[in-house]
C-alpha cells in the first residue's frame, strides 16, 4: 500500500472497506495514542502536584531562578509553530500546492528548532549556575534540599517535552520531503493531519509546563 504516486489517493489497505473507514481509523488511532501520552506526562504532573503542595516555598524560590523572558518567548514560538502546522494541514486539505505545504512544514520545523535552541541556552545557564541536580548541585537560596527536587522535576518535564519535540521535528522533516514530492493533496493528507495532532499535543503540554515551572511565585 506504500506505492501511491503523485497526488492520487492512497490505495486502501486490505483490512479496510474503503478510504473513509481507513482515514477514520487512523484518526481515532492517533487520538487514542494521545490519550496514552496524556497519562504518560500525567505521571510527572502528579509528582509535581504532590511536591509543590508539600514544599510550596522551596518551589516558589527555585522557580524564580528560571529565566521568565526566555520561557515566555519560547511559549510564543511554540504557539507560532502550532499555527504554521495548522496552516500546513489546511493547505493540504484545500489545495494541491505542494510547495506551500512544504513551506509551512519547514516553518514549523524552524520554529521547533528555535524552541529547542532557546531551551538549550536555558539548560546551559542551569549547568553554569550548578542548578542541575546531582553531586555538583549548588543552590544559594533557602531550602536547597527541596529546591533540588524542583530542579529534578524541571529537567525531567522539560526534557521529556523536548524529546517529544525532537521526535516531532524528525517526523515533520519526513513529511516535508513527501510534500515536495507531491504526496499530499485534498484526497490524501492523513500523515500531515496526524502529525499535526501530535505537534499540537506537544504544544499543549508546554502550555501547562510554562505556568507550572516558570510562574510559581513571581510576585514576591
Amino acid at each position: 500500500m506504500s506505492d501511491h504516486v503523485g497526488t492520487l489517493p492512497a490505495a486502501t489497505a486490505h483490512q479496510f472497506d474503503d478510504a473513509v473507514q481507513q482515514r477514520d481509523a487512523s484518526g481515532l488511532g492517533m487520538w487514542v495514542f494521545l490519550v496514552t501520552e496524556i497519562l504518560f506526562f500525567g505521571g510527572l504532573f502528579t509528582i509535581y502536584t504532590v511536591y509543590r503542595s508539600l514544599y510550596p516555598e522551596a518551589f516558589g524560590h527555585a522557580s524564580g531562578t528560571l529565566d521568565i523572558t526566555l520561557g515566555a518567548v519560547n511559549t510564543a514560538v511554540l504557539i507560532g509553530s502550532s499555527l504554521t502546522m495548522a496552516l500546513a494541514v489546511h493547505t493540504a486539505q484545500v489545495s494541491r500546492n505542494r510547495r506551500l505545504v512544504a513551506l509551512f512544514l519547514c516553518a514549523t520545523i524552524v520554529l521547533g528548532g528555535v524552541f529547542l535552541g532557546i531551551k538549550g541556552v536555558e539548560y546551559a545557564q542551569k549547568f553554569h549556575e550548578h542548578h542541575v541536580p546531582g553531586p555538583s548541585f549548588h543552590y544559594s537560596g533557602a531550602d536547597a534540599q527541596h529546591a533540588e527536587l524542583f530542579f529534578c522535576l524541571y529537567f525531567l518535564m522539560t526534557g521529556l517535552h523536548a524529546l517529544h519535540m525532537v521526535i516531532g521535528v524528525g517526523l515533520l522533516s519526513v513529511l516535508a520531503v513527501m510534500a515536495l514530492r507531491g504526496r499530499f493533496g485534498p484526497s490524501y493528507y492523513t500523515p500531515v493531519e496526524l502529525t499535526g495532532l501530535y505537534w499540537h499535543f506537544v504544544d499543549i503540554v508546554w502550555i501547562f509546563l510554562f505556568p507550572l515551572l516558570y510562574l510559581v511565585e513571581r510576585h514576591s
Binding site: 497519562l39 504532590v50 508539600l54 541536580p133 534540599q145 533540588e148 527536587l149 529534578c152
Partner: peptide, 29 residues
C-alpha cells in the same frame, strides 16, 4: 500502562543519574 512506564523510567533515571525524584534524602516521598 503509560503511568507504569514513566514511573519505572524515573526509577531508572534515579539509579543511573542520581536525580532523586523519590529519594527521601532530598525530601522525595
Amino acid at each position: 500502562t503509560p503511568v507504569i512506564a514513566i514511573t519505572l523510567a524515573l526509577v531508572g533515571v534515579e539509579r543511573a543519574f542520581h536525580i532523586g525524584i523519590f529519594d527521601p534524602a532530598i525530601g522525595g516521598d
